[in-house]
Design a protein around this nucleic acid. Structure first.
Lengths: 351, 351
DNA sequence: GTGGTTAGGGGAATCGATTCCTAAAAGCCG
DNA sequence: CGGCTTTTAGGAATCGATTCCCCTAACCAC
């Protein structure tokens, strides 16, 4: 077609062959130029190539390159809930690393639905993604291990999947939660309710509750078993659990701990609805330092997760695996940070 | 290689040729099967193909298909700020439509940096994305129109770019802001400050301020020109502007209007820092109905944008263009919704 | 039985880059 | 200056699907 229509502003995309012709060299030489193999090109040739590329507005076709090299230069990211700021922050971290290395990101959002997750993994597969970073629902072991069988590096974020040896990057949940729980003890709360979506199948939630429970048990605190679970989509469950906690702890100095940011918000909402004020009637704290945490009431005490760094580390791990490292799978736990604000004042004076 | 290693669990990916051999037909027939052209395949052949595909765990390679068909089946999305919940919600809407139609999304985040934006557009180009949805910084007219020259459908979200005829999907800023401003008038505020990042180059902000200004001017209200601009990254600018507003409106009943969610948060923070309480000392309202809006103080009055629908519509528009529609470019303005909460009580009793 | 149509399917070129192997030209040494 | 290495470069196969064009057998009508 290029022989028929040689108009200078042809909308046809230039190919490597067009560039070669324009520069008076072979495709091989252009390809060498593109892959940065400058040392086998003479200065004159180099200049002609650069001119030809500029003139033709040539852009290498990644699909062609990908086909030949059997790699796509894209990394898949599958999030359980993309609307969670946690996800976005991880995405940003991953993206920055990714772009610096010439890769692109293909994203999907599963809404915590294992069926969606399954389909997305299949789609990523068809795209021949070079690696996968996934915030897993926890229910697709088989397909994930299939990817691993095909030598596609898979890195989990936030959650481990028991029985699957994958690299994993997340917060040091046990450590951060222990520190937070000790702080709550020091503040003198008589009862602490741990509010969470079902902790089963989700390692991060389990670890948090475990740390909470361990610390309280070691201190002979009555709340060591105070786990209040609910489905996030069913707010009546959250409300019922809250009412149960309120009834069970009547008259004591008490606080709520939310396993994540969204739970914090729902609890705060429910408290307001009941006319209970923070922190007078009830303290509150939780995982995830949302941007609104400083401005609600006199500020909400939170555990900040190193989300951006998690994204970075996860992507670095993928690239490292792509680089040929097949050492043992690693579990990277980045430290969280307790941020104390007005929602958890000391109760000791009251006693 | 498959002739050397025929082990059943070979990690080698099966190709269409492998499937063809296993099913005892030609590649052509497999390809027909893959593209859903069942009517030129006999029942027996069909069955053998399906068995072969299942047995070999065959997954068509999208890059190969893309190369031949000159389309990638992926849509690029470039966000000015992915950490803004606005973006995530748009992304979700777009993603749902996209996936239903067999496309994938490649995402990037520019941090409102025109240079990053430029690079990302180039990268998308190399990926041969079939279409682009972009929340533009407003500074890369040339490259964007280059994409259009190459027949790649581009749909803008939230912001228009003057001089460029692209499809655009956003909120009906003028309408929603007019309604909100009339409401504030009815509440009897004597002064209203419009706080915004620089409105120049960003059509959505401009429209909002225009509506605000028009409504107030028509009502002979003194705040028709009360625009307070600042760079979001420089909080001292925001603080200075706020102090200016406070000084200029001393003794009057007053409120702040924030051009978007992030500005709301910064203003609330700054007010708290000054010991000013909402809504007693100052009312506040703003664009974007964040999830925390109901729980801050007695709730923040907001203008909710139809973000999910914007994402859907934008993606639908891209697909429609890909389907061959080259009718006139459209400007789709979806209605916003004023949500009144405690932060903007009536001032009339005070007067 | 002949001509024509249709169902079912195959051969081979093709998309745009990469890569292996080969080869001409240039530089170097004694 | 002849033989050596090094530099610079090209030819052609290749990646995995799609697609154009062609072919055969069966069926149908007359």
């Amino acid at each position: 077609m290029s022989s028929i229509n040689e108009s200078p502003k042809s909308p046809q995309k230039a190919t490597i062959a067009d560039v070669a012709k324009a520069a008076g060299v072979s495709k091989t030489t252009i390809s060498r130029y593109l892959s940065g193999d400058y040392k086998s090109i003479s200065a004159g040739t180099l200049k002609r190539i650069e001119e030809a590329i500029a003139e033709l507005r040539y852009r290498p076709n990644r699909m062609a390159r990908g086909l030949r090299q059997a790699r796509s230069y894209s990394i898949g990211m599958i999030f359980a809930d993309i609307s969670n700021p946690y996800s976005t922050s991880v995405l940003r971290g991953a993206e920055d690393v990714c772009t610096r290395n010439g890769y692109s990101i293909i994203v999907c959002n599963t809404d915590n639905d294992p069926v969606k997750e399954k389909n997305y993994i299949a789609m990523m597969h068809a795209h021949r993604i070079d690696g996968l970073i996934i915030h897993p629902t926890g229910h697709n072991k088989d397909i994930l291990s299939e990817m691993a069988d095909e030598q596609i590096p898979v890195v989990l974020i936030d959650r481990e999947i028991p029985g699957l040896a994958f690299d994993m990057v997340g917060t040091d949940n046990y450590g951060a939660m222990s520190e937070a729980t000790r702080f709550f003890l020091d503040q003198g709360y008589q009862r602490i309710g741990f509010f969470s979506q079902p902790i089963k199948h989700v390692s991060s939630r389990t670890e948090r509750f475990l740390a909470f429970s361990d610390v309280l048990r070691n201190a002979d605190h009555p709340s060591a078993k105070d786990l209040y679970e609910f489905e996030i989509r069913k707010s009546e469950q959250l409300e019922a659990q809250l009412d149960r906690f309120i009834a069970e702890t009547d008259g004591q100095s008490r606080m709520l701990f939310a396993v994540n940011g969204i739970t914090q918000l729902k609890l705060i909402n429910a408290l307001q609805k009941r006319g209970l004020s923070i922190p007078e009637d009830m303290g509150i704290a939780g995982f995830d330092d949302s941007d609104w945490a400083p401005v609600v009431g006199s500020g909400i005490t939170t555990v900040e997760q190193p989300t951006y760094e998690i994204g970075q580390k996860a992507m670095e791990k993928v690239l490292q695996r792509l680089g040929g490292d097949d050492g043992e799978k690693e579990r990277i736990a980045l430290p969280g940070k307790l941020i104390v604000r007005g929602s958890t004042p000391s109760q000791l004076k009251k006693i």
